[in-house]
């Protein structure tokens, strides 16, 4: 088939095929990532269960996590809305896109 002077029906066919290939590739990748996530998360509870045996730490209140942080940011006595505002202000002040910054935790400092 002449792909340089491609005919219109052939172009339509390749367009559909190309879109299908992109979907096929990304759907397969999604399945791989889901399996990967399942395997990694199966180990996580085991590790968490093993921890009290060795250390037996004092019960700690699980801090609520801010929305949209992929679970990395821990909030202590901070409202998610305030946390989002703080992150936006920090990003703006540093002149850095928010996705290039990593916030570990936000804690309200109370006056004693």
């Amino acid at each position: 088939m002449d792909l340089v002077n491609i005919s219109i029906p052939a172009a339509g066919l390749y367009a559909i095929l190309g879109y299908a290939v992109v979907f096929f590739g990304l759907v397969l990748l999604m399945i791989v990532m889901m399996v990967m996530g399942k395997i990694m998360h199966k180990d996580a509870p085991k590790a968490a269960a093993a921890a009290p045996v060795t250390a037996a730490p004092a019960p700690v209140r699980e801090a609520p996590k801010a929305p949209g942080t992929a679970g990395e940011l821990k909030l202590y006595d901070t409202d998610p809305r305030d946390a989002a505002m703080i992150m936006a202000i920090v990003a703006d002040t540093m002149k850095k896109p928010l996705n290039e910054l990593r916030f570990i935790s936000i804690r309200e400092v109370k006056e004693r």
Binding site: M40, P67, T69, A70, G71
Partner: peptide, 18 residues
């Protein structure tokens, strides 16, 4: 939208290889 699940460091390291 609901908060997404936690992502471990290992997942992030394995991801580019996969």
């Amino acid at each position: 939208m609901e908060q997404a699940r936690e992502v471990s460091k290992t997942e992030k390291i394995v991801f580019p290889m996969v």
